[in-house]
Design a protein around this nucleic acid. Structure first.
Lengths: 246, 246
DNA sequence: TATTGCAATATTGTCGACAATCTGATTTTG
DNA sequence: CAAAATCAGATTGTCGACAATATTGCAATA
C-alpha cells in the first residue's frame, strides 16, 4: 500500500466557487436577511453567466439560507427569534446524540484535534476578525459530529451550522462586541476528555444555552424594533417585505 | 378583515415539476441507486431544456438523494446498510424530540388528522399499490413533526423522509411483500391520544425498530451479494461503480 | 379620491449552442 | 508485447439570447 493519503483535487467549477462566495457573503452578514439577490447584477459582478449562478442559488435555497419565490426572486432568509430558538433546541438534541455516538471513537487523534481546535478558538479571541471567532468556535463544536461516524447527523449539523453562523454574525454586526462565553470552552474540552459522558452531555446543554439566550434576546429586540416601524403604516396582518436589492 | 384564508397559487415552474418527477422516480425505485442521470436523455424525454433540469438536480443533490461529481455526472445515492442504520438512529432521536414538542399542541384538529391518516394507512393496505402504503405510513408518522411547531425540525424530518421512502421502496421492490408491521400503528395512534408522553416516546423507539431491522437485514444481504460479485475481479480496495445509465 | 386598466420596464425562467472535460479505443513507441 | 501518447466521441459546464412573468407608473373612470 502507498502510505500517503492524498486529498482530492479541488473541484474547480464556477458553480462551486459561486456557492462559496455567496455563502460567505450571507454568513458574514454582507448580504442582509430579507435582501433580494439580483441575478443579473451578481453575475456581472462575478464575471459569470447566470446559469452557474442560478444553480448555486438553488443549492443555497435547499441549504436553507436562501428562499425562492418563482418569478419574484431569491432572498436571504429572514431571522426571527423563533428561528434562533428552534436552532438552539435542535442543537441541544443533536449535541446529546453526537456526544453519545462520538464517545467511543475518541482516539489519540481525536484529542489532538480537540486541542488544536481549542487553540484556534483561543487564538481567534486575540484577533480583530470577529467572523473568525465564530468559525473557530463552531469548528470546535463540530468535532463531535465529525467523529460520530454518522453521515446523516453530520449533514444535519452542517445545515444547522450555516444558520448558527449567520445568527452569530448578525449579533456581532449589531453590537460590536465579541461573541460571549469563550472561556466556557475550557470546561467543554475538559469534559470531552473525561470519562463521564452524561456530564459532557449535560454541560453541552448548559454551555450552549448561554450563547443562545444572548442571541434570542437580540433577535427579540430586532423584532420589537420592526414592530414599532410597522406600527404607523400597519393596516392588515400581512408582513410587508422591505425591498432591499443587491 | 376578510374572513377567508386563501392558499397561495400553485407555483408552476418547469423546474418544480421536474423536481417532482425526478423525486418520484428515485423514491419509487424507478431510478436505481448508483444509476447515472444523463442530462441530455432526460431533458429530451421530458421535452425540456437542460437548464431547468440541471437546477432541479442541484436541489436534489442538496436534498441528499442525488450525488454529483463535477464533469463526471450526477448519480442516485448508493444505499448501504450503514446509511439505513444511521437514518434509523437519527429518526429515533428526532421522534423523541418531535413527540415532546408536539405533545402540548395536540388539539381536536390534531386528533382528527391523526385518525384521518391512520385510516389512510389502513386503506392503503387493501390496495395493490405498494408505494402508496409507504407514503401513507410516512405521512402518519410525520404528523408529530408537522405539529411540533418547529420548522427546522420539520425540514430535517422531510430530508430524512426522502431517504426512508427510498429505502422502503427498495425493500419492497426486492421482495414482493408489503412493508412489515402495519398493525403496530394501532398502538402508536392510541398512545399519541393518551396522557403518557414517555410511553409514546418509548413506543416510537420500539415500533420503528421493527421496521428498520428488516430493512437493515435487507441492505446487508444486498451488500453481501455485491461482495460476492466483486470477489472474482477484486484487485484493490477501490469500489468500482457499475455504470448503469438512464 | 380611490380604483381599475394599460403600457413600459425590469427581472426571472427557459432555450439552443459552444467550450471544457472525461472516457475509451486506437495508434505509436520503447 | 507493454506502456505511453493520441484522437474521436460523448457528456457536463457555461454562455448569450429570447420568452414569460411581475412590477411600476400613469392615465382613465366610477
Amino acid at each position: 500500500m502507498s502510505g500517503i493519503d492524498f486529498d482530492p483535487i479541488v473541484d474547480t467549477t464556477r458553480r462551486a466557487e459561486i456557492v462559496t462566495l455567496l455563502k460567505r457573503a450571507i454568513l458574514t452578514g454582507k448580504l442582509e436577511p430579507g435582501q433580494k439577490l439580483n441575478e443579473l447584477r451578481i453575475s456581472e459582478q462575478m464575471r459569470v453567466s447566470r446559469a452557474p449562478l442560478r444553480e448555486a442559488m438553488r443549492e443555497l435555497v435547499q441549504e436553507g439560507i436562501l428562499t425562492s419565490i418563482p418569478y419574484a426572486g431569491t432572498f436571504v432568509i429572514e431571522v426571527t427569534a423563533k428561528d434562533i430558538e428552534d436552532a438552539y433546541s435542535l442543537n441541544q438534541v443533536l449535541d446529546e446524540f453526537a456526544i453519545e455516538r462520538s464517545w467511543p471513537n475518541r482516539t489519540a487523534q481525536f484529542y489532538a484535534e480537540l486541542d488544536r481546535r481549542h487553540d484556534a478558538v483561543k487564538q481567534a479571541t486575540l484577533e480583530v476578525d470577529t467572523t473568525r471567532q465564530i468559525e473557530t468556535a463552531l469548528q470546535l463544536h463540530g468535532l463531535i459530529y465529525e467523529w460520530a461516524d454518522h453521515s446523516l447527523l453530520l449533514d444535519t449539523w452542517q445545515r444547522l451550522t450555516s444558520r448558527l453562523q449567520m445568527y452569530f454574525a448578525l449579533h456581532q454586526r449589531a453590537r460590536n462586541e465579541p461573541v460571549p462565553s469563550l472561556d466556557v470552552h475550557e470546561e467543554y474540552v475538559r469534559l470531552l476528555k473525561g470519562n463521564d459522558m452524561g456530564a459532557a452531555q449535560r454541560h453541552a446543554r448548559e454551555h450552549i444555552a448561554l450563547d443562545f439566550e444572548e442571541l434570542v434576546a437580540f433577535a427579540r429586540s430586532l423584532e420589537g424594533r420592526n414592530a414599532i416601524d410597522m406600527a404607523p403604516t400597519g393596516h392588515n396582518g400581512a408582513n410587508k417585505q422591505k425591498p432591499i436589492d443587491t
